[in-house]
């Protein structure tokens, strides 16, 4: 039996032949017993298969959200809180970093006027009169911070310092060098640098925003999951 004839017979059984092909095949079937025999075999096989019972599914194959990895729908405000929490956290870390770096930068770059504690050799009253002027103007600014230090500490350790700080604007060259580069006490300008870039109150505020937003997010998520579980 040719493969082509076998396919023709099988298609003929299923009514898949064109009318002209079907007519031609029927004419051949009348005169070719082998062809008839094969057609009978094919029909027999097909009818046997069709007698196979259709089994009922042994259980329901319905899918649950867990099966398809579906997550509960979150409220629309959820991404906003997530963004707020993340932003507040990042800003908090940046502020902490800035407050940490600021004093170190100040000591590393003393010539920028904020510190005023440059190397004694490079500064003199004649060569840098302008550099002395800010020191003179800074002194009054420093007074409130120094005054804020408790009196007890001032009397024990800081008495000489205070005297020097007050004297700084009027000091001559050598005295200035002593006050700045003497190394006995911390120069007054460095105390100014300890004032943080971002005040603690802002840091607390950022931390609060981050924590509250994260808490609201967690609550929203939990409520959504509970509602979703009840529904499913």
């Amino acid at each position: 039996m040719k493969q082509r004839d076998l396919e023709l017979l099988s298609s003929y059984l299923d009514g898949q032949l064109s009318p002209s092909d079907a007519t031609r095949l029927e004419a051949r079937l009348l005169v070719e017993p082998d062809l008839r025999s094969v057609l009978r075999d094919l029909r027999s096989a097909r009818s046997m298969l069709r007698q196979l019972p259709m089994r009922k599914a042994p259980r329901s194959f319905k899918l649950t959200p867990k099966m398809v990895g579906k997550n509960p729908p979150l409220p629309r405000a959820y991404p906003a809180f997530r963004f707020t929490s993340a932003l507040a956290t990042i800003m908090l870390f940046i502020s902490m970093g800035l407050n940490f770096i600021r004093p170190q930068l100040a000591t590393a770059q003393p010539a920028f006027g904020m510190g005023g504690g440059g190397a004694p050799d490079t500064f003199s009253a004649e060569s840098a009169p302008a550099a002395e002027m800010p020191a003179a103007t800074e002194a009054p600014l420093e007074e409130p911070s120094i005054a804020a230090i408790p009196q007890a500490t001032m009397t024990i350790e800081g008495q000489e310092d205070t005297a020097r700080v007050v004297e700084t604007p009027t000091n001559k060259e050598g005295e200035t060098e002593n006050a700045i580069g003497g190394g006995l006490d911390q120069p007054p300008a460095q105390r100014v640098d300890t004032v943080p870039v971002v005040r603690p109150v802002w840091q607390w505020l950022l931390a609060g925003i981050a924590v509250v937003s994260a808490f609201i997010m967690a609550m929203m998520r939990q409520l959504s999951i509970n509602r979703w579980r009840k529904k499913n």
């Binding site: 493969q3 094969v38 094919l42 097909r46």
Partner: peptide, 13 residues
């Protein structure tokens, strides 16, 4: 068509 015809014949056999 080809697979179906051959499958039916094999099944019958």
């Amino acid at each position: 068509k080809s697979r179906l015809a051959r499958a039916r014949l094999r099944l019958r056999e």
